[in-house]
């Protein structure tokens, strides 16, 4: 197992009138190599949760284990943890600062105290993984497009060779193609390297297509946890907390309500197509 959270709670502004419970008794286990989507609306506690996983925030109570080790144990190396659990924040503008893309990606591995050759080798490898080739190395990070900035930021984390990659809203503000490109790349990385990936998002459509498990957060608690099929079956409750399910789920449920003998479990467009064709007694011709 790679990450285990036990009864973690966190409050903002403790001891003041503005005290707000951001996390309320969260327990969660994420095995190595899993592709997990964490969904919730703004203020549901999802961003707070992921910042606990690499020790940027400290729980008010509860325990967090990484590879079985208590990260709050005295003398635990938090900086090492941060390189193992790589967190890419929502806005790449918050981390890009160097004169060119290549040196920016070098920042992380250099902070690990690696020799210069190793640092550069890792930067090359990471940029290659996100699909930014040589021509981009000497470009200023501020000249890049939104999608490219996002990739440079992800490369900056990948170069630290994390075992767990956490992405906070990696597609916010991107156009549809840019969004698909980033998510495809992340999915490929997850497959090839067996990396554990946590994708934080509020887009059900995005998440359903890629992840094997969805954790739905609301008001500092975990509301649902399971495969996309299982979670989207609760689409009415999801709607109540302002999330809803992918549109395909509504189509299938709508059909079922009208007496269509259709399998309502599908969550992606392809699955839904096949389910409908089957219900109509047609084989998929493609």
């Amino acid at each position: 197992m790679s990450i285990k959270i036990e009864h973690v709670s966190y409050s903002y502004g403790q001891g003041t009138a503005y005290e707000k419970k951001a996390l309320d008794d969260i327990s969660l286990e994420i095995p190595q190599g899993q592709f997990v989507g964490i969904i919730g609306h703004t203020g549901s506690g999802k961003s707070t949760l992921i910042q606990h996983l690499n020790g940027l925030m400290r729980a008010s109570s509860g325990k967090i284990y990484f590879h079985g080790e208590d990260i709050y144990r005295e003398g635990y190396d938090m900086r090492a943890l941060r390189s193992k659990v790589g967190l890419v924040f929502q806005y790449p503008e918050h981390q890009l600062f160097e004169v060119d893309v290549f040196s920016d990606v070098c920042f992380g591995p250099r902070n690990l105290g690696l020799p210069p050759e190793e640092v550069e080798a890792r930067a090359r490898e990471a940029l290659d993984q996100v699909g930014l080739g040589e021509p981009y190395y000497k470009k200023s990070p501020f000249e890049l497009s939104g999608g490219q900035k996002r990739r440079a930021a992800i490369a900056g984390i990948l170069a630290m060779h994390p075992e767990v990659l956490i992405l906070d809203e990696p597609t916010a503000g991107l156009d549809p193609r840019g969004r698909d490109e980033i998510l495809d790349q992340v999915a490929a990385l997850q497959k090839e390297r067996g990396m554990t990936v946590l994708l934080v998002s509020h887009s059900m459509e995005d998440v359903a297509r890629y992840v094997e498990r969805i954790v739905v957060m609301d008001d500092g608690r975990i509301r649902f946890d399971g495969t996309p099929k299982k979670v989207f079956a609760h689409y009415r409750e999801l709607e109540e907390i302002g999330l809803g399910a992918p549109q395909t789920v509504y189509v299938l449920r709508g059909l079922a309500e009208k007496g269509f003998p259709v399998n309502t479990e599908a969550t992606t467009v392809e699955e839904a197509r096949d389910a409908i064709l089957e219900a109509l007694g047609r084989r998929n011709v493609c």
Partner: peptide, 11 residues
Amino acid sequence: YRLDVPQVTLL
């Protein structure tokens, strides 16, 4: 044109 259609339309 790097765009998409709503999921229902795509289905």
